[in-house]
Design a protein around this nucleic acid. Structure first.
Lengths: 210, 210, 210, 210
DNA sequence: TATGAATGAGGTTTCATTCAT
DNA sequence: GATGAATGAAACCTCATTCAT
């Protein structure tokens, strides 16, 4: 699925990219604090370093900002997660590292992940599918890893299980962001990774009926 | 933690309870469709069957409605989950049944769970703790069950693990609601319960290091 | 053709009528001075004696005000023109008096007629037909009078001529309003009526080829 | 009365004339569709084939465009009407032909006439007199013709009548444009010319009191 | 001379909340 | 207790105009 096109009045594509980066950065910091609905377009413009008129040269509606923000956050999380995933491919060790790596990315971008999580529903019916599709892309990363393990014989999983477990990994990672208000009181990041990785791997690996 | 007091002008407590029930019912159905911010107080009043003036006899601010709604949904989910939990206490079978039971409750109340999930962040700093506390109550249900299993010797878990696994159960249940857009394409509820229960139990039970 | 319904949030029909009268009065005086587009909704509210919020309890969009204004002006002109039209029905004298009477109405309501004339095109495609239909109603008044004269034998006109002459009368009346910037320098109202009545009657009456 | 000077930043007069022609052409086609107020300066620039910056090299304010447009339309209507008016000067036949000719010009330029009619009131107090003066020039054309007929003895009219009848001719011509929504359903252009010419000539010619 | 990005005042409209009845 | 008309702050968005390039 291609990206949704957000139409700008300004022609210069370089400039559009630059201004939108400023905009996204400004908007994220506001959305973190107050959420999308509590943030005004003027505030977004100000935080982006330009006037309200200029803001609207680069978007059409306020919701476009939210779309761009969600889009960016997903890209960021995905890109970072995909970094350095090559080694140990198709091994349990590789899976273990991927999980840990992903959890650390969520920790670094926890504000962003939270924003994304809580504001997605504010997207219009038009934008939503594009963003949900990115959720699927995240799950797909772990599906690939799991599938590689199956192919190498390191794991024995049905296709159904692969897909479900991939979602489980993604969600238990995000959980560190959206339940941080309680989890951080109980665990350090390292403890959380340690415990959840054990939990996940056992849940994924064992074959015998419980 | 006690409930947050939502102040009503009307004194008759019976009436307050009755009107608030109507209000919560009306509001939930609206929040499901359009979310809290897109729903106006007038719409809430109308859907509740009384006038805007009357609505404000039973709440102080719009956010009170959201608080009451979230509060109610948590109570509903918790109450239903706690039903018929007595049997098999302290056994793996009891845990298995509790999980399945809880997942079915989430399925029945999926709209409500979604509302709760997506609108919590709209609560004021004042209300939020009360609602988050209810999240903890949900986790506490499974902590009790897990702890009973540990005490009966059916499971061997540290206190840290008990608390984390309880959250995992709660979140993977909610996941059926907040990822339904993808999960329902892949699994029936029964399949989801079957797969996730296996996954959870294996993750929880096994003792040997992976 | 029925009137276009302008939807009000307020239920009390009496009140709606009263407030809309205030609104129309305020709006006309503003439209006279600055035209529809130069007039802001805030100004309309103020001139009507209520707040901007209240204004929008009685209309949905700014254009509704324009529709109500045009609608009212047509009604006013038509009603006043139709007054005392009974006598001399079917005679040239009756026609002469009707013309004079109508011209005097235009003179009294010249500002209103001007507003109507110049702002009609600002109406939406949705409202326009209802207002144009009122133009036809005006013409219909004179068609009836002319037709009565034909039936009584006082005039000999084809149906085509009746309809055209009716429009001519209406337009030459309105001309006193929309060309007042020049006509009033040249003629008093009485002179204008005298000259135009002669002109119209001769144009209408004579049968022989010129 | 001289033309109002519309100030351009660009000095090259040839270029100014050329660009303004493009501008007027573009603007008219937009004003036809949406009216002056609904048309943006950007749209005018685009329709004219240059940038918004360039537009403002040739005008000072948006209203200048409207002035130039109205000015041009009047010139066009007047020039075309004055063509081939020499023959039959001072005769009823000459008058008859002039009326028919003018009505055909209005028919050809009906969109333009409508624009002019409906947007004149959007002109500033400063520009208005210049444009109204052109209305007088139109009337003057027919005043001249009528006066020639009086001088040749073909008609017997007071100065007052001459001036009024000239306006009547102008307005009944414009009426074909501004009432076209109804008139075209009832008459072809030829029928309209035929009927109105008879009407006008009878109204103008007959001497006996009615 | 031509461009188009930038500006921000100001437009329309919404909606939570109040309060007289 | 119930009503709903009134309020006005504040939201989103537009667009005429400027000015650096």
């Amino acid at each position: 699925m291609k990206k949704r096109e957000v139409i700008a009045s300004v022609k210069d594509e370089k400039l559009v990219k630059k201004r939108r980066n400023e905009m996204i950065k400004g908007a994220i910091s506001l959305f973190k604090q107050k959420g999308f609905h509590q943030t005004t377009t003027r505030e977004i413009a100000k935080a982006s370093g330009f006037s309200i008129g200029t803001l609207y040269e680069y978007i059409r509606k306020k919701e476009d900002v939210l779309y761009l923000v969600c889009d960016r956050i997903y890209d960021e999380v995905r890109e970072r997660t995909e970094q350095d995933l090559g080694a140990h491919h198709g091994t349990i060790e590789g899976l273990r590292r991927a999980i840990a790596h992903y959890f650390r990315v969520v920790d670094e971008l926890d504000d962003e992940v939270l924003v994304m999580y809580q504001e997605v529903k504010a997207l219009s019916k038009e934008s939503l599918p594009y963003v949900l599709n990115k959720e699927l892309d995240m799950a797909a990363i772990f599906e690939h890893i799991l599938r590689a393990c199956v192919e190498s014989g390191a794991l024995q999983l049905s296709e159904s299980e692969i897909r479900l477990f991939a979602h489980n990994i993604v969600v238990l990672g995000q959980m560190w962001a959206f339940r941080r208000w309680v989890l951080r009181k109980m665990y350090t990041l390292d403890e959380y990774i340690e415990l959840q990785t054990e939990f996940l791997l056992k849940g994924i690996m064992e074959k015998q009926r419980v």
